[in-house]
Design a protein around this nucleic acid. Structure first.
Lengths: 213, 213
DNA sequence: AGGCCCAGATGACGCCCCGTCATGATCTCA
DNA sequence: TGAGATCATGACGGGGCGTCATCTGGGCCT
């Protein structure tokens, strides 16, 4: 007996749900990422081992390697994930900005908000003094840097600002944002506005322009 | 028979050379550091193992652990070494500086010169894309940061500059110096003057003050 | 000189992490 | 329902890790 007489050629409701195979694959990949985030948060990146991550998933060790080649690759995947979520935000700021200052303020503010959000899921209990690696230059992360680069160039040109060494300038801006952002997270209460103001003024006017606390 | 009749109470020429015991200890510690520098340079920090370092010294594995507890500790020792050499240079700049700008220029210039010098012994052949860890906050390194902090405070006060958030400001200055310094090392020819000028102007006047290339 | 002592060099050892692979279970599709 | 594809499994060899019982020889005393 055939279903053909009773159902249209395609199954009803266009069952788009992927088969079980595909679903477990997605679930496994996700649980590895979740476990990794937790382990990195608890033990710190350096101390964490692939085995720690595997144990937390409950999967077999070999299964891990069907998805990622190493601890580094998982970390990169997490970084990529963050970058992928941040990129559209940055893009939006870049699009809506009228001049350089508002672009800068929007972008840095967005980054700091983002940082504060991520903060939670990462630095749960990491050992004192340990250095958490900054996101490495994975494709997605690099794309964000490039986007900053391009956005800076675009907005500067639009403002008829004098040509500058963009490579140095972008590096300096990113450095300031990173470092002031880190310091911001260490203070209680976390003051996103203050940090944003500081970073923006530092970039736009240097020392003389800084806010007086 | 006694030497007393022939020699003064203390042995001649006041032989201060430490005994052989002490000398091998110093030599071992030094060869471990040398080996570590070479290994980190060749394999990169991440890939390097304690065994790699041990093998290169020719010592037994146990001996290594008589001197350092781990790869991290050796790296920190190397960083401390660098910091210990850099500190007096920084101090000299701080002492001789008449105003904030000359202090800043002197300090950054000194740092970039230092970077260029160190450059040789470190990044010999490291794998592309690998992140070389910035010096961690070892006591000596921390001391350098603190010195920067203090020097900034002192010079700023002397200049009757408006009060600023020193924590943020120092972090931003160090961030700029680090990042522009790294980028400087990637360019050929290495232009210490140009990088110094950029960093100084960025800190002193932000975007509008930057040199036009 | 001869002998004793102990700092410290040695390398074998047990432990654990690494990445692989032969095996088997389960899904898919005809 | 059966054949084949896909992928989870966990045992395994390789190797790095840090330790420790043992040995070596420099320091020191007589």
């Amino acid at each position: 007996m055939s279903n053909i007489a009773y159902f249209p050629a395609r199954p009803p409701a266009e069952d788009n749900r992927p088969g079980k195979r595909e679903r477990t694959k997605v679930a496994n990949r996700q649980s590895i990422l979740d476990a990794a985030r937790a382990v990195f948060g608890e033990l710190g990146y350096e101390a964490a081992t692939v085995r720690d991550i595997i144990r937390r998933t409950g999967l077999a060790s070999g299964t891990f390697y069907n998805y990622y080649k190493s601890k580094e690759e998982v970390f990169d995947a997490l970084a990529d994930d963050g970058a992928r979520r941040f990129r559209p935000i940055l893009r939006a700021e870049s699009d809506k900005a009228a001049d350089f200052e508002s672009f800068l303020r929007g972008a840095i503010r967005a980054y700091f908000d983002f940082l504060e959000g991520e903060h939670e899921s990462w630095r749960v209990n990491r050992p004192a003094g340990e250095i958490f690696p900054h996101a490495r230059a994975t494709p997605e992360v690099q794309a964000v840097f490039d986007e900053v680069h391009v956005a800076l160039a675009k907005v500067l040109e639009h403002d008829h600002a004098p040509a500058v060494d963009l490579d140095y300038f972008a590096a300096a801006c990113i450095a300031i944002a990173r470092e002031v952002g880190d310091k911001m997270l260490e203070r209680r209460p976390i003051d996103v506005d203050g940090a944003t103001d500081f970073a923006v003024r530092m970039i736009l006017g240097g020392l003389p322009a800084l806010p007086r606390p």
